Simulated scan of single mutants.
Amino acid sequence: MYLTKEEEKIYDGELGWAYQISMRILVKLGDLYGAKSLIPIESAHISGVSYKTINDAPIEFLKALLESGGRSRVKATTNPSGIDYGNPIFMLLPTDLIEKQRMIIDLYKKIGIEDSLTCTPYYIDPPRSGAHLSWAESSAVIYANSILNAWTNREGGPSALASALIGKTPNYGLHRPENRQFSVLVKVEADVKCEADYGALGIYLGNVLGSRIPLISGLPSEEENFLKQMGAAMATSGSVPMFYLKKSKKEPSEIHEVITVENRDIQNAYENLSSALEKPDLVFIGCPHCSLSEIKSIASLLKGRKVKSDIKLWVCTSRLIREKASDYIKIIEASGGQVICDTCAVVTWLKDLGIDTLMTNSAKTAYYAPLTNRVKVIFSALKDCVKIACIE
């Protein structure tokens, strides 16, 4: 891979170990995927923040980067951690978990990476159309590529961190226009009406598409929240990096495969995502983290109602959205719900918090929670979640 003179100096260690190891990570990645050079990025988004998912190993690496003078050269944000330090319920976790999670967050901050602690960095500072990024959260990657027309590969935590320190990423994959073409036409003939239906659709499509890019037709709504849920689910059951929406009736000539989605496919996805029949301990909303419009919708459903005493209701969002939604937050909290920031049900210790069964409208959570937290799941629409959570 071609390196400029400045990049060669970094590669050879002239700017210190932190930048050298970061450059070598990027060059190794570029060589592996046939990149010819590095390109500048507008921002990086780093996964691998929750102590629950990364454990101890990365802590020493982050310390070494910091001690070697490593600092982010571009705007860089972080994925959710395992704890909301502003909510007393998380102080019930073991002390060592609380302390080590705080250490990880502090190390990232000292390296110059924002403690945004959200999977929706695009609500904080949306990237420009056509901007090159190095993002490591799968739901944010497919959102950026498909909805915002930004350009990013699905990075791992280490490569996104390396890109933050160098300010560049290898020029391969979805940074190349020829790799951003759709190859499959998806015809949605199923009745998809709500955000959970779109999530179920995404789970089905991720399973059948793998990593292929689809052109999707037949969606009755292109509401942002619906597309966010669909995309997050496609990147969960598969590794779909982006999708296109069909805008015209003309059939594209370059398509060689057509996939038709029927009602039974959506129903099967619902059944596969649900593993419980009993009453949930937790009703969880906000994966990916809620937007301002979602918070408003949740508040409107909860206004004048009360959450049952034996069920917890969590609504997860970023601190920025929480600040913007203060009036709606008051309604949610008055009902007995809790608005949680900096974490989510997928990356915290649910069992330690007394959760055995959760109900959610997030297909991504329904897919991952049994694997990451060994809890049972009920997957259903937002209106159903609120109905179950509240006193009749």
Rank of each mutant, 00 (worst) to 15 (best):
M1I: 01
L3M: 03
T4M: 02
T4H: 03
E8W: 04
K9N: 02
K9D: 03
Y11H: 05
G13E: 07
G13C: 03
E14A: 05
M23Y: 03
I25S: 10
I25F: 11
V27Q: 06
G30M: 06
D31M: 10
A35Y: 04
K36E: 15
S37I: 02
I41T: 02
I46E: 11
T53D: 09
A57S: 00
I59P: 01
F61M: 06
G70C: 02
R71S: 12
R73S: 11
R73Y: 04
K75V: 11
T77V: 04
T77N: 06
N79Q: 04
S81H: 03
S81W: 07
G82M: 02
P88K: 09
F90D: 09
F90Q: 08
F90I: 10
L93T: 01
T95K: 15
T95G: 06
T95V: 14
L97G: 00
L97H: 08
I98N: 03
K100Y: 01
Q101R: 01
M103D: 13
K109P: 07
I111P: 03
S116M: 08
T118Y: 09
T120K: 09
I124T: 11
S129R: 14
H132Q: 08
L133Y: 12
W135F: 06
E137P: 11
E137M: 10
S139Q: 13
S139A: 14
V141M: 05
Y143L: 13
G156P: 04
A162L: 06
S163D: 09
L174P: 08
H175E: 09
H175M: 08
R176S: 13
N179C: 12
Q181L: 12
F182W: 10
F182Y: 15
V186L: 08
K187T: 06
V188M: 02
E189V: 00
A190F: 01
D191K: 14
K193M: 10
A196T: 00
Y198W: 07
Y198K: 04
Y198M: 02
A200F: 04
L205N: 03
L215R: 05
I216L: 05
I216C: 08
G218L: 08
S221L: 11
S221K: 14
E223C: 01
L227W: 15
A232T: 09
M234D: 12
M234E: 13
F243H: 05
Y244A: 08
L245I: 15
E251C: 12
S253I: 13
E254C: 12
I259T: 11
I259R: 02
T260N: 09
V261H: 08
N268T: 15
K279M: 13
P280D: 09
S293G: 00
S293D: 14
E294I: 13
K296W: 14
K296H: 15
S297R: 12
R305V: 07
L313D: 04
V315H: 05
V315C: 11
T317N: 04
T317V: 10
Y328V: 01
E333M: 07
G336T: 04
G336R: 05
I340V: 15
A366Y: 05
P370G: 00
P370A: 07
T372C: 13
N373W: 09
V375N: 10
I378N: 03
L382C: 02
C385H: 05
I388F: 05
E392A: 07
